[in-house]
Design a protein around this nucleic acid. Structure first.
Length: 729
RNA sequence: GCGCGCUUAGCUCAGUUGGUUAGAGCACCUCGUUUACACCGAGGGGGUCAGGAGUUCGAAUCUCUUAGCGCGCACCA
């Protein structure tokens, strides 16, 4: 009888020691697992950002994924779970600038110096995060740890970019409209925009007194960039004007407005006439390209009117709007002013206004281009088919519909960012760049091209470009490594639903094009963790529960159970300190039950037959049935269910009934009754510890070290509790 | 506009293909402490399963519908 057992369970004294034992055992590394582990099972950890400390969402994902990997390891799989961290380009750089109160302008000629500072900052954060992942008990193979910006991953990113460029999937958009984040001073993708619904005035007016048709706009200041008015071809009201061009003076700017007919115009919306601003609206850009209209940029990258805006030059957007509205009033051009609902686009990361404007030298991924190497299918089709064919299963299923809905509306992915911390594009040009964007002024290449004067493009890649390669870049791709052969496609991708498009979809895109296969078989999505008032946990609300603090107070096992129980797939979950407390009590319950069983039973030799009483046999059979159920739940990703069943069985059947009844038999029963009862409680405890291990690895490993079983190993590599996986001890 | 969810006990949520008296945790109430555990045990109260209609021998579960809440995408002249 171990003296440790006499005191209450103390996670603090136990966890770090156990984690060290696991690491020393090498069992996190599939190459060092015992013989019986043959069939490969792999997962990649969604790499946490190196922007700061671990949050509740990461704690949830670590808990769930570690449960999966420990379960499969016990079932005899050759398990690989790859850790890593994400440089999170835009997020890290923004955070660094804010925290250190640094201005990029001070580094105008010293980009390398700046990048090095950000990198130091990132790596020091990385250490903290990695340490916290360990405290969760995560059985990650640290020998294979990756960083999205390390050398191996740089090689993968460059290779991917060049391959995509050669297949004409990556192209340079020559003055194509981008989403410009005025505050963050960078281009962002469509997915990085959030919409805020606001009330805003909609003005209905004419450019000038003699202009025949009124138009409506919430942004009259952009109308100085108009080159056409579009009407529906069947609209009787305006048919007579189609094809005519009007020369007008609008707020001191000369405009040439051509009246065009385009079926995309809704006759019933507003006046049925649409002022076309080709430089500042993607829709208008499309109309303009159909009608060969001139495009005039009138807003600059600082969010001000430029020299093409005449007297408005230099004015901020809102100032310009006021001036224009005043002009309309002064000249009796304003016909109507009404308040309408509008979705105002904002940059998700910086919170800044998004302006649509044309920008040169920006790169895009074409999602509609047929790919020769992939049977003429487009990226969009490949992404779609991966799921519709059933090759990838998304759980819960409703997210498959959400995914497909997103694919159907997908536009080309803009991948250039005006951020310094990240993967610089492998694209070179002769300085200075030509002004006319002639087709071959740049070269795509791993290294600087021969000859003098070559300069690398300043821009870096969208951080999700490197994350998209994660399922195979972590396995050594583009090298043909053993790891890649053995572990790709990975089995399960477990992540939060809010990065389904950002990450999951991009991984499918990259893998389908570069590998010709899916990156994983099953996508299991968990929800967001919210506080007890159902608010999203965030720094600004100050409602952040620090996982590290919870682990200190209640132990990692309690933390894991609290994260998992009550958390159904794809649904947001609520967390409160009460929940941690409840499972801390449970850890102690397991401890106390073990103390009782181990002091009241002896070493079990499973080769010796014990004749069980009818009652005890029923207990054992009932237990086996429950373990079968739990195994099913695990197979179906119902971890919340499995955990709850285990909790309930262990406490309210095993402890409250079976153990209570065994006391009488052990203390006052016949020799047969005693032996039967002892065997039963020992057997159920021993099996329960195995079943509990994926969920509560520390306390079960600690107790296992005291359980008198012949030839036992650490519980982390023992067989799963299910009879099917029973092998003689 | 297109699409997807949710509404079950005071709170947080389960409830698989329709099948006895609808479950759990927390909270609450009563009783109990010399021998595994008060981080405990025994017992208890509490629900028109959002409203309505239908299918069925039978509906929390399937269909339609109303209301409220939430989410994704698109539009946003």
């Amino acid at each position: 009888m171990n003296e440790k057992l006499l005191k209450p369970y103390n996670p603090k004294e136990t966890e770090a020691r156990i984690y060290k034992q696991w690491e020393e055992s090498g069992y996190f590394n599939p190459d060092k697992l015992p013989e019986r582990h043959k069939e490969a099972f792999s997962m990649v950890l969604p790499p946490p950002n190196v922007t700061g400390i671990l949050h509740m969402g990461s704690a949830l994902m670590l808990a769930v994924q570690d449960i999966i990997i420990r379960f499969e390891r016990m079932r005899g799989k050759k398990t690989l779970w790859i850790p890593g961290t994400d440089h999170a380009s835009i997020a890290t750089e923004t955070r660094f600038i804010k925290e250190k109160k640094i201005s990029k302008r001070d580094f105008t000629e010293k980009r390398d110096e700046f990048v090095e500072l950000v990198n130091d900052y990132a790596l020091s954060n990385q250490k903290v995060i990695i340490e916290q992942m360990r405290t969760m008990g995560a059985s990650l193979d640290w020998s294979r740890a990756a960083y999205t910006l390390d050398n191996e991953r740089k090689t993968a990113v460059t290779e991917a970019f060049i391959k995509m460029y050669e297949s004409e999937l990556i192209y340079m958009g020559k003055g194509k409209i981008v989403n410009w984040d005025v505050k963050g001073q960078t281009v962002v993708s469509d997915d990085e925009i959030e919409y805020e619904s606001v009330k805003t005035p909609l003005y209905t007016f004419r450019y000038s007194k003699d202009f025949p048709l009124p138009i409506s706009s919430t942004r009259p200041e952009t109308k100085v960039g108009d080159t056409a008015v579009a009407v529906h071809p069947d609209d009787e009201r305006y048919r007579q004007f189609i094809g005519k061009t009007f020369k007008i003076n609008f707020v001191d700017t000369e405009l040439n407005i051509k009246i065009i007919a385009d079926p995309s115009v809704e006759p019933d919306f507003g006046t049925g006439a649409l002022g076309v601003t080709p430089a500042h609206s993607k829709i208008d850009e499309d109309i303009a390209s159909r009608h060969n209209l001139e495009s005039v940029q009138i807003i600059d990258e600082l969010g001000r009117m430029n020299e093409k805006a005449g007297s408005l030059k230099g004015k901020k957007i809102l100032e310009a709007r006021e001036i224009v509205v005043q002009y309309l009033k002064d000249n009796s051009l304003l016909e109507k002013e009404e308040v309408v609902d509008q979705n105002k686009p904002k940059a998700q990361r910086s919170g800044g206004i998004i302006e649509e404007l044309p920008k040169r030298h920006q790169f895009f991924v074409n999602v509609n281009k047929p790919i020769k190497e992939r049977g003429g299918k487009t990226l969009k089709e490949l992404m779609r088919e991966s799921v519709t064919s059933g090759k990838i299963k998304i759980l819960p299923e409703r997210f498959e519909k959400i995914y497909l809905n997103w694919i159907d509306n997908l536009r080309d992915w803009s991948i250039s960012r005006q951020i310094w911390y990240g993967h610089q594009l492998p694209v070179w040009y002769k300085y200075p760049a030509p002004t006319d964007d002639s087709t071959d002024f740049f070269k795509v290449s791993k290294i600087k091209p021969e000859g003098s004067g070559w300069k690398q493009f300043e821009d870096t890649l969208d951080t999700w470009f490197s994350s998209g390669l994660w399922s195979f870049s972590t396995l050594g791709w583009p090298e043909k490594t053993e790891d890649f052969k053995n572990y790709h496609p990975t089995n399960v991708l477990e992540t939060a639903y809010d990065i389904l498009f950002f990450w999951v979809a991009r991984m499918i895109l990259m893998s389908q094009f570069l590998i010709g296969d899916v990156p994983f078989r099953t996508v299991y999505l968990h929800g967001l963790v919210r506080d007890e008032k159902n608010r999203k946990i965030s720094k600004s609300l100050g409602n952040n529960i620090d996982p590290a603090e919870m682990i200190k107070q209640f132990g990692a096992d309690a933390m894991r159970m609290a994260m998992v129980i009550g958390t159904s797939p794809g649904n947001d979950s609520k967390i409160s300190t009460d929940k941690f407390k409840a499972y801390k009590h449970f850890a102690n319950k397991i401890w106390n039950v073990s103390r009782f069983v181990l002091t009241n039973s002896e070493e079990i030799d499973y080769s010796n037959k014990v004749t069980l009483s009818t009652e005890d046999r029923e207990y054992v059979e009932e237990f086996e049935k429950i373990i079968d159920d739990i195994t099913d739940d695990m197979d179906n990703f119902k971890f919340y269910m499995a955990a709850e069943k285990l909790y309930h069985y262990f406490w309210h059947s095993f402890a409250d009934i079976i153990i209570e009844k065994s006391k009488e038999k052990i203390w006052n029963g016949t020799a047969e009754e005693k032996a039967s009862a002892q065997w039963t409680i020992f057997h159920i405890l021993e099996r329960s510890l195995r079943a509990l291990h994926p969920f509560m690895p520390f306390v079960t490993e600690e107790i296992w070290s005291m359980v008198p079983i012949k030839n036992k190993k650490m519980i982390i590599v023992e067989s799963w509790a299910n009879k099917k996986y029973d092998h003689k001890i």
